[in-house]
Each structure stands twice: as structure tokens, then as C-alpha cells.
Amino acid sequence: MYTMGIDVGSASSKVVILKDGKEVVAAYVAQVGTGTSGPEQALNEAFKQSGLSQQDISKTVATGYGRFAFEDADRQISEISCHAKGVHFQFPNARTIIDIGGQDAKAIRLDKDGNVKQFFMNDKCAAGTGRFLDVMARVLETTVDHLAEYSEKAEFPASISSTCTVFAESEVISQLAKGEKKENIIAGVHKSVASKALALAYRGVIEEDIVMSGGVALNAGVVKAIADQTGMKITVAENPQTIGALGAALFAYEEALKDH
């Protein structure tokens, strides 16, 4: 039996197709989110990867910011529950999830069965999210994919103290004007993202194992900054951008079982 999870985010659309609730047969990330061709593109690519078609899918669960805009789903489930489900599937010992996506950051505490015990999300502010890194990368004349390479070569993180994305951008510009090395500034930007995400996690209790998911987990610089600040080991989820979609596909499997 095949089930599907689709995570329609603000910055990207992710699809995971699962066989019998166990094996990932397709996982695709389209780099555009809700309101674009992203969801359709991700669906088509996932079908191409798996050689399956819509008729083969028993159930579909949608999650993410655009979950209600995706009409072909059997059910919508919040990204909080889906991330918890996806991470627990990959790492049953995970107790804390730090998920940083395109426009939100969340810290989720899990119990031993993978249920959500508590969660905290950012408020109406994009500081400490993927958007923050996008803005900084543009000012620093690079792309988000290259940020980690730069910060690896940093001597020390430059001070980026503003929480606000707009003010932090001005700070980066003034650091550049002062002649600060791009590597150090980028390490400072990563440190700033880590602090913001950890501020959410610290509202609860940070328990190990800690797993990071979401697109920003692909940036080794941010992962290192979080590990440095917590003094704890951070595990990056496998294919971290698709964790929400994986969780949705797992929920879809549970739904499908109910019908059989």
C-alpha cells in the first residue's frame, strides 16, 4: 500500500510517498511554496521517481502553511504533529526537535512514544528562519547553499546583535563597510539564527536526543552554532526538508489502515 504526505510550506513544497508505512519510495523538494506551481511540480516529480500514479495512492495527508489550499488531500494535519511523527520514525530516541523552515522556527518536545509534549513557535517575525538567511545571503552576495562553506573558514563570529531581520541587515552592511571578513559575518549570522531558535527551545526543557529538521538543517554552519551554544550533540534528520511530508505520509498510512 502506498500513502503520500505533502508539505506545502511558505518557501518550498515537499512530497514523500511511502510503501506500507515503512519504506520511502519517493521524496522530492520543489523550491517554491504555497500559491505557486510548487505542489504540482513536487507531486509530478515524486510520481516520476516512484513510477506510481495518483490511483496507486491510498491516502494523502497535507501539512504546512498551505495545507488547506491543497485540495486533493484526505486530511490536513498541522506541521507540528507531522514533524514529530517524521522525526520519531527516523530517530525513536529523539526528545527535542528544532525545526527551522522558510518562515517559521519551532521547538518541539516529544515523549518516548513520539507524542508532542510541548511546542513553541516563533511569533510574527522571520528572524531566525530561512528567510533571515535568504536576506543575509543576498546582502553578502552569495547564496544560502554556500553560507556553511564560508562560516567554516571564520576566525570568530562577528557580532550580529539585532533580532530584527531589517536591523540585522543594516548591521551586516555596516560590518562589511568596516572591512569585516565575509566568513566572520556569516558565522555571526549563523550564531544569531541559532540563538533565536534556541530561545524557543529554552522556553521548554531541552532534552537529548536533539534532532534538527527543516531546510535550514542543511546548513552545517547553523547546526554547528546550535551545537556550540547548547554544548549538546545535534543530529540532522535524514533529508531534513522532507520530514514534515514524511510525517504526513505516516499519518496517511494510519488513516488508510483504518479503512482496511
Binding site: Y65, Q76, I77, S78, E79, I80, S81, N115, V116, F119, M121, D123, K124
Partner: peptide, 14 residues
């Protein structure tokens, strides 16, 4: 509204 709905839904799921 969207942020509220997500949190409310998560509470329901919990």
C-alpha cells in the same frame, strides 16, 4: 489567522 489556526490544530491533535 494562519498562525493561530496551526497552533489550534496542533492542540486538537495533542
Amino acid at each position: 489567522a494562519a498562525q493561530f489556526e496551526t497552533r489550534a490544530q496542533a492542540l486538537g491533535e495533542m
